[in-house]
Design a protein around this nucleic acid. Structure first.
Lengths: 166, 166
DNA sequence: ATTTACTTTCAGGAAATTTTGAAACTATTG
DNA sequence: CAATAGTTTCAAAATTTCCTGAAAGTAAAT
């Protein structure tokens, strides 16, 4: 396979992959494009390669920056902005975990906490509270496991963790 | 908070949570409803509680059965089918991991494998292949970690793992 | 073999999400 | 300070995803 074909396939696949995990397809594709780029790209480069509008490019770039996956880069003598992706996979994954934990897992934990105080007088209410507590227990464990994971360093994941878990 | 309020809040939140992870909102809500139900529910019960059509209920129930999160239950003397959810959280999570690994992670790994053989003659192609390989390495590790996780038992997760990881 | 009770399918409609593009905005240059 | 180069915003349009409902399918009961 040659580069243009490979590139295209990667952009498509990464977009679809993101999509099935609740990430906007274009955001995933911009991320993919920047990850494989050897140098920083401008908004126009990105618009060209992905055939998307300026507004779309701009909005998704800002989201990626917000997630800590992309950085602005200013080139001396150039007026426009350039963008580079975080290329260390461990950092990429860590940042994604941090964001989704904050935006999705933690609010859910808060809700579960509120729900565990529903008055349990009937059998139906009893089962409700029992199940909410089971879900909460499990989610809290997942939450603190992710905390630990995020604090750990790359080597620990690719090395020690793999051995421990075997 | 009383039961109807709590129930409603849980159904809403679980639906939104699923939604942000790429799971159809209604599928997540049916799952939520069955998880907190003290007994098996019929399709009509589900349609009533969630105010959804028969077609929608049926399609999402089948998807949930496919994921191993819901089972059909036949009641003696009753002609219609009833449904119960898998209530053990560890099993729920395990089944979700199995499904998503199979449907999303593994196809991605296959693509990455193909892409790592792109001819790397130019600097651009070189960076492409380098990055694809880094992503593949990381994804493979994640894949085998999930394999191990799925084989492990509940106690191991809530007990040992938490200690090891601390 | 017909009726009754229920389940499944899927084309078309509804809803949610994403994208566009043009106007407003910001900042640098001459 | 006017012109130029670029960025941001957001209402409306396009697209994607989801849901409905009615018709077709299945199978138990009479």
């Amino acid at each position: 396979m040659n580069l243009p074909e490979g590139k295209d396939k990667f952009l498509q696949s990464w977009g679809a992959f993101g999509s099935s995990w609740g990430v906007n397809r274009t955001m995933a594709q911009i991320h993919a494009l920047l990850m494989i780029a050897p140098q920083a790209l401008s908004a126009d480069d990105i618009m060209d390669e992905l055939k998307i509008s300026r507004g779309n490019a701009n909005m998704n770039l800002r989201a990626l920056i917000d997630w800590g996956l992309v950085f602005k880069e200013l080139k001396a003598g150039e007026r426009k902005e350039f963008f580079v992706a975080e290329k260390d996979m461990w950092t990429v994954v860590k940042n994604i975990i941090i964001q989704r934990k904050k935006k999705e897992l933690e609010p859910m934990l808060k809700v579960l906490d509120e729900l565990s105080s529903v008055e349990n007088n009937t059998p139906e209410a009893e089962e409700f509270v029992r199940m909410i507590k089971e879900i909460k227990l499990f989610s809290s464990k997942a939450d603190s496991t992710l905390d630990t994971l995020v604090k750990a360093d790359s080597n620990w994941f690719v090395g020690t963790f793999m051995k421990m878990i075997k």
